[in-house]
């Protein structure tokens, strides 16, 4: 008989950079929680190193970054770099906040599979995470 318990999807929600507006991040964190996921929320003003280190220690399946400062093209590649440096190469990445249309292809090119702007229905994010989160153990 198996006694394996169901593995909940673990998601890290983080805000890189210096803007302090975390309403969106909190709404997403709550929506994912209500969808049965375990959400590690790290708060505002996270450096790329802090985000990558938290992702490693928490062994998350998914990382969601929220940014409104406009520094995404500066900070997102550095988050990806820091993750790679730690051997964290199998997480699903998505982001939200203010990402101009023209930048989306570049954000996707560095590994972000989902980009969710203002007004996104949280159900779309839940569905995206459910469908794309890696199953590892």
């Amino acid at each position: 008989m198996t006694t394996d318990t169901a593995r909940n999807i673990r998601v890290l929600i983080a805000k890189p950079g210096l803007d302090g507006h975390d309403r969106g991040a909190k709404v997403v964190a709550r929506a994912l929680r209500d969808a049965g996921m375990e959400v590690i929320y790290t708060g505002i003003r996270q450096t790329p190193q802090m985000i990558a280190e938290a992702a490693l220690q928490e062994d998350v399946d998914v990382i969601g970054l929220s940014i409104l400062s406009g520094a995404h093209l500066e900070l997102f590649p550095r988050v990806v770099e820091e993750l790679r440096a730690r051997g964290v190469d199998d997480v699903l990445l998505f982001c939200g906040g203010i990402i101009p249309q023209d930048d989306i292809p570049r954000v996707e090119a560095i590994g972000f599979k989902g980009v969710f702007g203002p007004g996104t229905n949280t159900n779309d994010i839940i569905e995206f995470v459910r469908n794309n989160a890696p199953q590892r153990v």
Binding site: N8, A29, R30, L32, R33, D34, A35, G36, M37, E38, V39, I40, Y41, T42, G43, T47, Q49, M50, E53, A54, Q57
Partner: peptide, 22 residues
């Protein structure tokens, strides 16, 4: 604690432990 309704959870302890992450 996990939510008894959804089984999900928001784990926020790292917020208080920022400086330890590095």
């Amino acid at each position: 604690p996990s939510s008894p309704f959804s089984n999900g959870a928001i784990l926020g302890d790292r917020i208080r432990m920022q400086d330890l992450t590095g």
